[in-house]
Amino acid sequence: MPDDFGGVGDANGAPGDLDPGADPGEGMDCGRQNFNVERKPASILLVLDRSASMLDDPNGDDGTPSKWDIVVPALQEVITSTNEAASWGLKVFPQGHRAGSCSAESFPSDILIPIAMNNASTVNQAISETEAEGDGTPTGDAINKAVEYLKTLQNDDPKYILLATDGDPSCPKSASDEFAVQAVTNAAAAGFHTFVVGIASSESKVKALNGLAVAGLEPRQDPDPLAPKFYLASTKDQLVTSLQTITGEVSTCLFPLSAAPPNPDHVGVFIGDQAVMQDTTGTDGWDYTGPDMMTIKLSGAACEQVATSGAASVKVIFGCKDDPIY
Rank of each mutant, 00 (worst) to 15 (best):
F270I: 00
T295V: 12
T283F: 10
V250F: 01
M277I: 14
D287E: 13
T295I: 05
T241S: 14
D287L: 12
G282F: 07
G290E: 13
I246P: 06
M294D: 12
M293C: 12
V250T: 05
Q278W: 02
D273H: 04
P256W: 01
I271T: 03
M293L: 13
T252G: 05
D265H: 07
M294C: 07
Q278D: 08
Q278F: 01
W286R: 03
C253G: 12
K236S: 15
D292W: 03
T247Q: 09
P261E: 13
L239Y: 03
G282T: 07
D279E: 09
T280P: 04
V269Y: 02
H266G: 06
I296D: 05
L257H: 01
N263D: 11
Q244T: 05
S242T: 05
T295W: 06
M294G: 13
S251Y: 04
V267N: 03
D273C: 00
G282R: 13
P264D: 08
T281R: 14
V276H: 01
D287T: 14
T289G: 11
A275W: 00
P261V: 10
Q274G: 02
T245H: 00
S251R: 03
Q238V: 07
W286Q: 09
P256T: 07
H266C: 11
T289S: 12
N263Y: 06
Y288S: 14
F270N: 11
V250R: 04
M294A: 11
P291C: 08
N263G: 01
K236V: 12
P264M: 09
A259K: 13
V250P: 03
I246G: 04
G290R: 09
H266T: 08
L257S: 06
T241Y: 11
K297W: 01
D237A: 15
S251T: 12
D287P: 01
T245S: 09
Q244H: 09
D265Q: 15
G272I: 00
Y288W: 10
G290A: 14
G290D: 15
P261A: 08
V250Q: 07
Q238D: 15
M294S: 15
Q274M: 10
V269S: 04
V269M: 11
P291L: 12
P261N: 06
Q274K: 11
S258P: 11
L254N: 07
D237F: 04
E249F: 00
P256M: 12
T241G: 11
I296P: 01
T280M: 13
P264C: 05
A259Q: 15
S258A: 13
V276F: 02
P262F: 00
D237V: 11
A260V: 10
T252F: 03
M294L: 15
A260Y: 03
A259H: 04
P262M: 09
G282I: 04
V267C: 11
V240H: 01
G272L: 03
P261W: 02
L254G: 01
